[in-house]
Structure formats: C-alpha cells, structure tokens
C-alpha cells in the first residue's frame, strides 16, 4: 500500500507526528490512519484534520506501507521516529527529529530537513537531497548516546555538530559542513566532500572523518601521521586524491583518524615538515 499525505494548510505551529511511521500505518485502513493522534502546538488533533490522505495499491506489495508526503512539512517533527521497516518519501522540506531512533527502513527527502535528522539512529537509511540542519545524526543535547548504525546521505550542506557522539554507521555529506563535525565521536565514518568549518573531530576518541574540501584549521590536539594516496569511504567508494592523515583528539587520548585532502589545503603544508 502507498499512503499519500497532502498538508491541508501551511502549518504555523509545530506539529508533533511520530505516528507518521510505516510501522503504525501497517494493517490500518485509511480511515483508521486518519484518526491517529497528533499534536499541533498544545492542541491534540487527528491526522486527517491536518492532512488529506489517499491510499493506492502498490504494484509490488511491500511488507510495510510506503508513505509519501507531498508538500512542505518543515514544521512537522518526529516523522518516522523509531521506524523499523517500510519507506517514507517527503517531496518537500521536513521538520526536526526526522527518523529519530529509527532502526530500519528508508526515508528520502527531496528538500531540506531541519535539526536532529537521524538523531540516535540505530539502522536504516536517510537520504536528503537538499540541505540538513544542525545535529545531523547527533543525540539530544546533553545525551552521549549517539548514532549506533545506519546510513545518512546528504546531497547539500549540513549545519553544526554533524555526527556528534557517533558510535557506528556512516554519514556522507556531498556539500559543506559546519563546525564540530564528529564532535566526541567514538566510531563510525563521516565523509564531507566539500569544505568544512573549524574544529573538525573535536574530542573524538575513535572513528574516521574524511574531508575532501578546504578545512579552516586542524585542532592543535591532532597530530600528523602521514600522507595517503587514496581513502576508502565504504565498500565500493574510494576517493583518489592525496590526503593528510591526522590522529586525535589527544586531549581525550583519542585514536580517531582525520583525513584532510591535500589539494584544497595549502595552508596545512607546514605539517609536512613533521613527517
């Protein structure tokens, strides 16, 4: 089954809708789905008060329904939170906490997403064709339980603290990234194809960060290990270019690996004298 959701209005207040989840929709008729509860500001509403719902039968019948949202839902939070299977497609912008703690399945956004997309993710895939906000894949403020698995692909730019406290999994960013990429990272891989603001890998203990573009500066608590001709991002994806390899963060006795492309970073050439 494919369920299509069309927002009935432009949302002015934040909407909390963790029920937009294939797991919840599964086995329900369109009327039952419409009666699911959501919050708009401090008022409880039914899903069909905010969205027009349409169901169509899929050609191939997947196990869990595919949910497609047509329109701007940038005020709708927690879409696909905790989802375990199925697929969500958002043809527009999506709000905060998209796919929070998701375990499996796929979310595709043909627009931008706001903060905490894929927060505390355990598995599955999130693909964003626009930009992503701050705290991509990072836990809620104060928590140390970061991303533990899964994959996030962003084709645009991302905000600050992408992949903070990450333990496992992969984040691929084909645009630029803000400050503190991989803050307090404990494992996993983050790839930033373009430029990166400062403080990459601050307090990281383990894991890998690869930056293909220009980095403002590398933290003084990172030490240079050598030059590499190519870097493998994941199975079947290798970047062929010379990279500096740094390890750190030494303030945390870290063994994290930070690859920074040599070409776009002539200001880091002074590190070569230590090799």
């Amino acid at each position: 089954m494919i369920v299509n959701l069309y927002p009935l209005k432009e949302f002015k207040l934040p909407v909390i809708a963790e029920c937009i989840n294939p797991e919840v929709f599964k086995g329900k008729s369109i009327e039952e789905i419409g009666r699911l509860e959501v919050w708009e500001g401090n008022k409880q509403r039914r899903l069909n008060e905010l969205f027009k719902l349409e169901a169509e039968e899929a050609e191939s019948s997947p196990e869990a329904p595919v949910i497609t949202i047509h329109g701007d839902v940038s005020r709708v939070r927690r879409i696909g939170a905790g989802m375990k299977n199925g697929e969500i497609v958002v043809k527009g912008d999506a709000g905060m906490h998209l796919g929070e703690e998701m375990r499996d399945g796929k979310i595709t956004v043909y627009g931008n997403v706001l903060g905490w997309a894929g927060s505390m993710m355990r598995g599955g895939t999130i693909e964003v064709h626009g930009n992503a906000g701050d705290y991509l894949g990072a836990p809620y403020r104060g928590s140390t339980e970061g991303m533990k698995g899964g994959k996030i692909i962003v084709h645009g730019n991302v905000g600050r603290e992408a992949g903070a406290h990450m333990k496992k999994g992969i984040i691929k960013i084909y645009g630029c990234a803000g400050q503190f990429v991989g803050f307090r990272m404990k494992g996993g891989t983050i790839y930033v194809q373009k430029d990166c603001e400062a403080r990459v890998g601050a307090c990281m203990v383990d894991g890998t960060i690869i930056v293909g573009g220009c980095v403002e500066s590398v933290l003084p608590s990172f030490t240079i290990e050598g030059l590499r001709k190519r870097v493998k991002i994941e199975e079947g994806e290798v970047v062929e270019a010379p990279f500096y390899l740094f390890t750190g963060d030494l303030t945390e006795n870290g063994r994290g690996r930070l690859f920074v492309a040599k070409g776009p970073n002539p200001h880091l050439s002074h590190y070569e004298k230590f090799l």
Binding site: P139, Y140, R141, G142, S143, E145
Partner: peptide, 8 residues
C-alpha cells in the same frame, strides 16, 4: 540543568 537528556 546538567541532564537535559533525562527529561525529553
């Protein structure tokens, strides 16, 4: 204050 993650 120290534990916002405790509350949410």
């Amino acid at each position: 204050l120290l534990r916002p993650e405790d509350h949410f």
